[in-house]
Simulated assay, not measured.
Amino acid sequence: MKARLPRASTALATPVALAVATFPSYLPALPVALGVLVALSFLAVLAIARRIAGSRQHLTGPAHQVAVALGGALTAYLMFVTWTTQAAMRANIGMDPLSLSDIGVLVGAALGVVGAVRGVGWLWRLRPRMSRRMVAFVAGLSVLTFAPASAQAASISSDQVLLLKSPVGAVRAYAGLSDSADDAARARIAVDRLVAAGGLTREHLLVAIPTGSGWVNPEFVAGTERRFGSEVATVSMQYDDRPSWVAFLLDREGAVAGAQTLLDTVVAEVSALPLVQRPQVHVVGESLGATAGQAALLAPGAAGDARRETVCSTFWLGTPGGGRTGLPRETIAANADDPIVHARPSMAIVPTGEDRPWLPVVSVVHAGADVLGALAVPLGSGHRYGAEQPDRLQTCD
């Protein structure tokens, strides 16, 4: 029996969808994420192509064969380009190349999404009520496709470096949500622990505003202790237990309030000391912690003035949207491929102004996928910052 060729629309939609799904982005795509993007791009391009074609007569004969051959050739070429491009991006940041199992995950994710969407469409025509439940199920599966990055973020936040003993005799003090549900009480507990451990007698006092989950970057703590030895104390306070992106969207004000409360408590303790005995106070924030720390220092009024007068320097790592305060002795760490710093919702309709390829809608979708995988990369790329950063911290010597 003679094999039946695919429709011309399908053959030509496939390379277009592959080009859309693999359009240049900030980071190498996770295999499962790339599979989902390929599938959704294919379905969208195919729907547009068939809507444009409408009721026009389908290609037949030699024209059909040429369209299928052209689509196949373009697909093969783009698959080669995708493979080499992803390999180069991975090698550039120290990631392992795509393996055969990665390709299997990619293909499986793509086929699974296409099959699920086609199945929902079929059910919608037969039984609309059941299909609505299926839509919710498919949406849930789509969220789970990015579970590796979320799981990594969760495992990172569960390891609180400030609860571990410093190997160089530096002071570490921390208060979590389990210590108190009240910001003021929790800040008091953190600072009391700092004072009891002799933190105010050290030359440098680092106030670390954590990420949404309460995580303080152990690489940064290790870097400051390598630089200053036992003459540094670090204090921090948890203000939420959700991943940063969830807290950023749902309760950014809570993060700012937590940062303000901790800073005010530290400022009160430091200000009570004789001028010659006061440590240099440095504020460091990463991710949502950077946003919260900046807002706390830029707040108007007497409290904001007191914070700014007490703080020697600031250091912001991976600030969402790339914000900064403009205060003296401010240091910014922003990886060039960190989508959380550089991506904007406005990318859907206007370029970011950075020297990178851009397409309307497509670029913002890719940026969203990159955000979800921004922690699943080696240190020094994406939204991960290493132990070399504290060498740039400015002092008041």
Rank of each mutant, 00 (worst) to 15 (best):
A63F: 09
L317A: 15
S287I: 08
R278C: 00
K2D: 13
L298N: 09
Q260G: 03
L263S: 02
A290G: 13
Q238H: 00
A39P: 02
D192G: 06
R324C: 13
A67R: 07
T265K: 00
A336T: 15
R392F: 08
A149G: 15
A255F: 09
P218F: 01
G380W: 00
S41P: 11
P15A: 04
V350C: 01
A233L: 04
V113Q: 02
V350P: 06
P210L: 04
T85Q: 11
Q65C: 05
T201F: 05
M95A: 04
Y385K: 00
R242N: 09
A87H: 12
R226G: 11
H64N: 07
R186F: 10
A208M: 12
H64G: 12
A53V: 12
R51L: 14
R227W: 01
D102L: 04
S346C: 06
C312K: 06
G289P: 09
D192W: 08
G229L: 03
L359W: 14
L27I: 01
A47M: 09
S158W: 02
A69D: 13
H342S: 05
V246P: 01
I209P: 07
D182L: 12
I209W: 13
L34P: 00
P360E: 02
N92P: 00
V266R: 02
S244H: 01
P243N: 00
E354N: 14
A247Q: 12
E309P: 01
A29L: 04
Y239T: 08
V68W: 05
G72S: 07
T145D: 02
H342F: 10
L46G: 00
L164I: 12
R125A: 15
L298H: 04
V377E: 05
R90E: 11
V362F: 03
A136S: 06
V135A: 11
R90Q: 13
P148T: 08
S313Y: 08
T60G: 10
M237I: 00
